[in-house]
Design a protein around this nucleic acid. Structure first.
Length: 466
RNA sequence: GCUCCCAUCGUCUAGCGGUCCAGGACGUCGCCCUCUCAAGGCGAAAACACGAGUUCGAUUCUCGUUGGGAGCGCCA
């Protein structure tokens, strides 16, 4: 049987980091086994579902490169199907209409709680066989088995057992005629022939009642896999307080999809000591049964490290458009400076994100906005600085080629000719070009400025020497 | 309150009864390299939550305690 997995987010917000990992694992499991991956949008909550959220999810999936074979399927497009299945359950005596008001249900729960039990529905209408009536409070409830227990073998958690007494008769169809989550998921997963239901830990508690539904429908059970949660750095549930939680916000912060995926795949799954996985390797090595059972914390530092790793190992030509996007976002004209590819080569070992790269690249796309006075004092206002800069001006002006290599050689030769250490030349020059004492290797710093601008900045800096 | 789940360095993890006075990675600290900052190299500090049991022997198995998480909706 071919493996079929699905990612089924509800469109009530953007695709957050936890959802992204669930999507990744579903995708990997399908790809690893040569099966199919389905995207389903669970939009039966009419109050909170929005079109913007749908777009955000699709955009996030695309950015991460998690392609699906079927979908997106919208549950609101399948309402007739849920009603048909519900009717079947009703006719088979496996479901019944109940008419309690919300207040009555609430009172029921309060009572149960007072008795030290779980708050649940007491099954009042279950055996009443009251004649059907139109009523604004009318809901269709499932006749959950009263005794026995539900046992399932979770692919990540192992054996999980639940006594039916703990479960109450869940609502299948709401008073507004829409199906509830627990009902719609089962109908969909059955109809879509999903073989492995991979989802967040927060759904384990729903699984036994869903299994009872599968059985009432006479449908084969899929394999279940519940992924442990991803917590914030403080060990608390991820929330907006933890900074960027939407996947597209990570793009804005300058992260690469490869880094996010690599980070996520290692959060709860491992393959020996290996830390870096290409997409191919993930697909090749991933197996849902190897996923950990305990929750993990989101660690920005490690993500940053991976991001830099991919910044350094990805072809600059591939990264260039993305860097230009960040430059433009910072209000700079990507065409008003050096080639993005050259900037990437110069900076990729010094930054962790593309947005940081764009910020550091500002110095080649706009005039020096701020002079680091300490650096000026230390490297420009020295007796040797003026001499050094004048010599460099001459040399650079006459340099036959304009490349980092040529500049490097010219600097080395100049240093030698004046019996100076390279640093005595490089630091004044660095301050002259950038206004600060920190920048990429001096030959790149100069090269990126372009000959014309480099000479102009040296002249301007000369005015600042003592 | 009730039910379910989880528990190895700060973080992510390896470990599937002896190979572990516990290995790797990120982070931290030190040294080297060096034109600054990085990157890189080398090195260091850093963990089996606790208590019983099973066993010749437990990080590994069982139970309990503690701690954390999830759920108990006409939300998903």
């Amino acid at each position: 049987m071919t493996v079929r997995t699905r990612f089924a987010p509800s469109p009530t917000g953007y695709l957050h980091i936890g959802g992204a990992r669930t999507a990744l694992y579903c995708w990997l499991q399908a790809r690893h086994h040569g099966g199919q991956f389905v995207l389903r949008i669970e939009d039966t909550d009419r109050e909170r579902s929005t079109g913007d959220a749908v777009r955000a999810i699709l955009e996030g999936m695309q950015w991460l490169g998690l392609d699906y074979d079927e979908g997106p399927v919208f549950q609101t497009g399948r309402l007739d199907r849920y009603r048909t299945v519900a009717r079947g359950l009703l006719d088979a005596g496996k479901a019944y209409w109940a008419y309690e008001t919300r207040e009555q249900i609430e009172a029921m729960r309060a009572q149960a709680k007072a008795r030290g039990e779980k708050p649940r529905y007491n099954g009042h209408y279950r055996e009443l066989s009251a004649p059907f009536r139109e009523d604004p409070n009318r809901v269709l409830r499932f006749k959950n088995p009263l005794s026995g227990s539900v046992v399932f073998e979770d692919a990540v958690k192992g054996r999980v057992e639940w006594r039916n007494e703990e479960l109450d008769d869940l609502v299948l169809i709401r008073s507004d005629g829409y199906p509830t989550y627990n009902f719609a998921v089962v109908v969909d997963d059955v109809d879509m022939r999903i073989t492995e239901v991979i989802r967040g830990d927060d759904h384990v508690n729903n699984t036994p009642r869903q299994i009872n539904l599968y059985q009432a429908l006479g449908a084969p059970l899929p394999r279940f896999a519940h992924l442990p949660m991803i917590l914030g750095a403080d060990g608390q549930k991820l929330s907006k307080r933890h900074g960027a939680v939407g996947v597209m916000q990570y793009r804005e912060q300058g992260f690469l999809p490869e880094a996010i995926l690599n980070y996520l795949v290692r959060l709860g799954w491992s393959h020996g000591d290996q830390e870096v996985f290409s997409r191919r390797q993930m697909v090749e090595l991933f197996e849902i049964a190897d996923v950990n059972q305990s929750a993990s914390r989101f660690d920005m530092a490690k993500l940053s490290w991976l991001n830099q790793h991919y910044l350094r190992s990805t072809d600059p030509a591939v990264l260039a458009p993305e860097l230009r996007w960040h430059l433009a976002r910072d209000g700079l004209d990507p065409a008003a400076g050096p080639a993005a590819e050259d900037v990437i080569v110069a900076l990729r070992e010094r930054v962790h994100t593309l947005s940081e790269m764009a910020q550091r690249a500002r110095v080649w796309f706009a005039p020096i906005a701020h002079w680091d006075e300490a650096a000026v004092d230390r490297h420009l206002r020295t007796p040797a600085a003026a001499t050094a800069l004048r010599a460099l001006h001459t040399v650079l002006a006459q340099l036959p080629g304009w490349s980092p290599q040529a500049i490097h050689e010219a600097l080395a030769a100049t240093a030698e000719a004046h019996a100076l250490k390279l640093g005595q030349l490089a630091q004044p020059l660095r301050v002259a070009i950038t206004g600060t004492a920190v920048s990429p290797a001096i030959e790149h710093t100069v090269y990126l400025a372009g000959r014309r601008e480099a000479l102009a900045r040296i002249e301007a800096a000369l005015a600042r020497t003592a």
